[in-house]
Structures are given as C-alpha cells and as structure tokens.
Computed example of a mutant assay.
Amino acid sequence: MHPVLKAGFALDPRIEADTQPVIWLGLCELRVMNDRRWPWLVLVPQRLGIEEVHDLTPLDQAMLTFESNMVAQALKRTTGCTKINTGALGNIVRQLHVHVIARNEGDPAWPGPVWGYGVRESYAPADLHQFCARLKAAL
C-alpha cells in the first residue's frame, strides 16, 4: 500500500477485519476476503465519503469499471470458475466496495448468494499467499 496516495482515505474497519490486501490497482485497493470457500475479491475505491458508484466522478466510474473487469478476468483465469458474481451492495458497510466472487455450479451455496451462508473458513497463511501470488501474476 502506498500511504501517500490515500490522501486521508480510511478503510472501513469491517472491510479491514474481513479481508487482506493484495495489490494497489490505481483507483482501487484490491483485497481478498479471508474465506477459502469461495475465491472472493473486494475492490475498494480510495475516495473519501463515497457510498455509491454514481457518487464517483465520471472518470473514476470508468476506472472502476476497467479495474472490476480486469480483476474479474484475472480471477476467472486463476480459478477456472464457471461464473463470476460482481456486486456493490453496501447495505451493511456503506463505504463503496465491489465484490468479485468466483462461483461454480455445485459450490456450497450454489445457486444462492454467498453472503451469510454457513461459517467462514479462513485461509491457511501459505494458501492465502499462494492464491494472491497467482492472482497478481494473472493481473
């Protein structure tokens, strides 16, 4: 992370607690959800006070779209999944963040949403490191 680029930005503590940083993309910090049941990434635009995509400037909206697509393609290549779910809900954590989740028919929550399903299974540190390295290589 490049603290000087954050310009006063503060990550919501709930996102920080549930995820680990992967890489700085430009507009967004890419983070991985610490739940090994699904390859689950979170893009967090580094902008103060933004809750909705339409709150971003048009240039930032374009950048978010570009980065979301780039991450989705890299996640699909990395995991070989059959479906990518992308969403920005923000009902609980208001700070704008975009979920990008690799899904496969027959995964534990298929075809339903992953939110609130079962009990989180944290990555072993070595597995998390390996997943992040493969993802970075795909980006």
Score class of each variant (00 low, 15 high):
H2P: 01
P3E: 08
V4E: 15
L5D: 13
K6S: 11
G8Q: 02
A10C: 04
A10T: 03
A10N: 02
L11Q: 00
E16I: 06
A17I: 06
T19E: 03
T19L: 03
P21S: 00
P21C: 00
P21W: 00
V22C: 01
V22I: 05
I23F: 03
L25Y: 08
G26H: 04
C28M: 07
C28P: 01
E29N: 03
E29P: 01
E29W: 00
R31H: 02
R31F: 04
V32E: 09
M33R: 11
M33I: 14
M33S: 14
D35W: 03
R36Q: 04
R36T: 02
R36P: 05
R37S: 01
P39F: 06
W40P: 00
L41I: 00
V42W: 00
V42K: 04
L43C: 04
L43D: 06
V44E: 02
R47A: 11
L48D: 15
I50P: 07
I50T: 09
E51H: 12
E51A: 15
E52M: 12
E52F: 15
V53H: 09
H54Y: 15
D55F: 15
D55C: 11
L56F: 07
L56T: 09
T57E: 14
T57D: 15
P58F: 14
D60H: 13
D60V: 05
Q61L: 10
A62K: 13
M63F: 12
M63D: 14
F66P: 06
E67L: 03
S68A: 11
N69Y: 12
V71C: 09
A72L: 13
Q73W: 06
Q73Y: 06
L75R: 00
R77V: 05
R77P: 01
R77K: 07
T78R: 00
T78G: 04
T79F: 01
G80D: 04
C81K: 05
C81D: 08
C81H: 08
K83H: 12
I84E: 14
I84N: 12
T86H: 13
T86M: 15
T86D: 11
A88I: 02
I92T: 10
V93F: 11
R94C: 10
L96I: 09
H97Q: 08
H97F: 14
H97L: 13
V98T: 11
H99C: 08
V100L: 04
I101Y: 10
R103Q: 04
N104G: 02
G106P: 00
P108Y: 00
A109W: 05
W110F: 06
W110Q: 08
G112F: 04
G112Y: 04
G112D: 12
P113T: 03
P113Y: 02
W115D: 07
W115S: 06
W115F: 05
G116H: 07
G118E: 14
V119R: 13
R120P: 09
Y123V: 09
Y123S: 10
A124S: 12
A124Q: 10
A124D: 12
A126D: 15
A126V: 07
H129F: 15
H129P: 06
Q130N: 15
Q130W: 12
Q130A: 15
C132L: 03
A133K: 02
R134P: 01
R134C: 06
L135Y: 08
K136N: 10
A137W: 14
L139W: 03
L139C: 05
